[in-house]
């Protein structure tokens, strides 16, 4: 009886994770695509030094960060995947979403400063282990760079 209840709980969590996780991921991808279109005029580059044209520009540090949680389905799928090896798609999409979201927030900050170019973009990723202790609980991504702002003088 106990085993049955445990299995039921597991299946329930798995179902909840699958349903809500997929929904959250789809919504998030929709919003990412929408905002990427809106912010396309803010160019993000990993160039280390500015062009000569940028000589008169002001500059400022901009950053964007996000923490995204895994869902139960992803945790289980990734656990199974690690038995067989190969691409862990469940986590790939998670990281992809987090990086793109972080860049978007950085672009947003640059746009607020009146900048159209961010150079020397760097990423910093780390995980926050949840109460599970194993696997990843959630991931945090920080994107930062230098925004060049056309100065008024």
């Amino acid at each position: 009886m106990d085993a049955l209840i445990q299995i039921l709980i597991f299946v329930l969590l798995l179902g909840l994770g699958y349903f809500f996780g997929r929904r959250a991921e789809r919504k998030h991808y929709d919003s990412i695509r929408k905002h990427e279109d809106e912010l396309r005029h803010v160019v993000v580059s990993s160039e280390r030094t500015p062009d000569r044209e940028a000589l008169g520009h002001d500059f400022d540090l901009v950053a964007g960060s996000v923490v995204i949680s895994v869902d139960y389905f992803k945790t289980v799928a990734a656990g199974l995947r690690s038995l067989f090896g190969g691409r862990v798609r469940a986590y790939e999409s998670l990281l992809d979403r987090a990086r793109r979201e972080a860049v978007l927030r950085m672009q947003h900050q640059a746009q607020a400063l009146g900048s159209e170019l961010i150079i020397n973009t760097k990423f910093e990723t780390s995980r926050i282990s949840g109460n599970a202790g194993q696997g990843i609980g959630s991931i945090e991504v920080l994107a930062y760079g230098t925004a060049l702002i056309a100065s008024s003088k």
Partner: peptide, 12 residues
């Protein structure tokens, strides 16, 4: 939230 997925805005 680890069950449902999504952004953890408090941690952000």
């Amino acid at each position: 939230k680890n069950i449902f997925g999504g952004e953890l805005s408090s941690y952000t």
